[in-house]
Every structure is written in C-alpha cells, then in structure tokens.
Amino acid sequence: MVFGAMIGLLGFAMAGQLPSAAEVPRLVPATLVDVPPENGTQTAVLAGGCFWGIQGVFQHVEGVVSATAGYAGGSAETATYEQTETGLTGHAEAVRVVFDPQKISYGTLLRIFFSAAHDPTQLDRQGPDIGPQYRSAIFPMDDQQAKVAKGYIQQLDDTKAFKSAIATTVELGKPFYEAEDYHQDYMHDNPGQPYIAIHERPKIEALRRFFPTRYRAQSILVSKRAG
C-alpha cells in the first residue's frame, strides 16, 4: 500500500492541501432502518481504505460466511492491483461480505463498518493510504440496501456521530471483482508485518471492544472456502 500513499501525498502537496486528522474509532448508534432478513445468504460490498484491514475485520464477525478482497467501482478490464493503484480506474479496494441475515443484519454490518473498520470522514484516503482507490464507499446490491445505507449516513451526520461530515459514497450498480490470491487473508497470514501491526490490527481490537457478542476469535478464511 506504500505506492498509493506516495502518489496521494504528492497530489495533496501539489494542491497545497494537508490531509485531515483521523477520527478516533467510536461506537456509533444502530441504524434506524434495516434490510429485512431473507432465507439464505445476503451480500454487502464495502470499501474503506486498504482491503487487507476491511477483510480482516469482517472475517472476525459472527454471522459472516465469507469476506473476499477485491475491486469495485470500475470495469473488469482494470480490476487488477497494479492498475487500481494508479487511482485512475474508478475502482476502490473493496471487500465482498457474504453473511447469514438470520444471525447478523445488513445494518449491523454497516454499524461495524462505521465504528471499527475505518474512518468514514476521510475523503479519498485512509490513514497513510491516499487516493480515490482508498475511498470510503458502500456498493449496494439493490435499491433497498442503497436506501438503508444513505439513510444511515444521513442519520449519523444529523446526530453528529463524528466531528466531521461523513465522506462515504453510496455507489449502486457497480460490480465486484475478486483480487489476486496473494491479497486474500493477508492480515491473517502476515500479523507481524509493520503495516498490519500499526494500521490494521487496531481495527480488530476495536471490533472486539465495541461488539464483544459479534466478535469471533477464529477468522473465516478465503483459503478455507469449499471449492
């Protein structure tokens, strides 16, 4: 993720701007409106900086069936790490979360996303990673998810859940493309890597602190998927 940070910092310098200070992780209120549960599984696609950390968080959430790193917001032709890192493809590093709605709701996943997984007030960046590929975004599967996501963002802004306005975009109708194998389970497989230890592991601690009944110690890994 260093390449994206360097390019992003250069862009801020050329524009004469300084990145805003990060918000401290906080437990935000639950959604007032949620997606009704259905039989079978449902899917959420979320982006909030480096997909290593977002994937790692949701792999520890009870009720999640799988969490897969990938790209959303651009075309299939540019859905590669090298191209996405230029910041020119429209993609965001994203995670597809498949979940059991009988155990956890879409709204609860959004609450975890805003509370523990990232800072939703940072525009086109997340921590040291800067550029539109690191934007905070929700990619709804349908109009109902889009309505819940937009309503929740408005709710959090209206109640001033954060000191700054939420920068999260809601981007309906954008397909998701799985990332390369070497990005999957990266946080689990590289716990001692400095970037992971400094920027991503604290998200797991926030999840455990804010949502003790939703936290599970053992990750659901992509490498363990059937097939």
Rank of each mutant, 00 (worst) to 15 (best):
G53W: 01
G227S: 03
Q55P: 02
R26H: 14
K147E: 14
L207V: 09
F12H: 15
F139A: 06
F113E: 15
I153T: 03
A5W: 09
A117F: 09
H183D: 07
T41K: 15
R26K: 12
F211Y: 15
G127E: 00
L88S: 13
I54C: 02
Q154M: 02
T43L: 05
Q155R: 04
Q145W: 03
E85H: 13
T168M: 05
Q193V: 10
Y152F: 07
T121P: 09
A146C: 12
Q55A: 07
P29Q: 05
D189I: 10
A137C: 03
L10E: 08
G73P: 00
M14S: 04
L207F: 03
E200W: 00
Y81G: 07
F139D: 06
M6D: 08
A217L: 03
H188D: 15
I112K: 11
G40K: 07
G131T: 02
F12L: 11
K160S: 13
Q133R: 01
R214S: 14
L221T: 01
Q126N: 15
G74P: 05
D119I: 05
A217N: 03
A92K: 01
A13Y: 00
Y215M: 03
L27V: 14
P19L: 04
Y71R: 00
R201D: 04
L156V: 08
H188A: 12
N39K: 15
R208N: 08
A72R: 02
T78C: 03
Q154V: 02
A116T: 08
V95C: 08
G90A: 03
G151S: 14
I112E: 14
V45K: 02
G173Y: 00
K224Q: 11
A15I: 02
S66N: 07
Q154N: 08
A67Y: 12
N39G: 08
Q193D: 12
F12N: 11
A116I: 13
A217D: 11
P36T: 15
A197S: 12
S219E: 08
S66F: 03
T43E: 06
D142M: 10
L88N: 12
E93M: 13
I112M: 11
T169V: 02
G16S: 04
T108M: 13
A149W: 01
V35H: 01
